[in-house]
Amino acid sequence: MAFNNFRILQHPVLGEKKNGKEVRIFLDGLPIHAVEGEPIAAALYAAGVRITRLSPHKKEPRGAFCMIGRCTECCMIVDGEPNVRTCRTMVRDGMRVETPRGWME
């Protein structure tokens, strides 16, 4: 199942991943499993989703680049609010995440 494909459940140094509460978020309407306490961008990676937005001008696909809230490449529309840094915003059950699709002509 895609849910665990990219999750590191066992780690030689960090040990076994503690089971967080599973929640469900929606990416462009499609349900994605996530774990409470993780940022949206991480949950998307875990589900194998790498595209966080299309760039405003050329509508090129972009993905998280820094994961610490600086690059703004992971900005998505979250519960209607645009430009939310998904690498620093934690998932909430039922959250609706949309992929921005560029806006410049």
């Binding site: 999750r7 590191i8 991943k17 991480a42 972009r62 993905g63 998280a64």
Partner: peptide, 24 residues
């Protein structure tokens, strides 16, 4: 600018803090 290209630190954050692989 392609998704999947990232800073080494970004990958490190993903794997060591969030426990998620950026790819295979």
């Amino acid at each position: 600018t392609l998704p999947g290209v990232m800073g080494a630190g970004a990958a490190q954050t993903l794997i060591n803090i969030h426990r998620i692989l950026p790819g295979s």
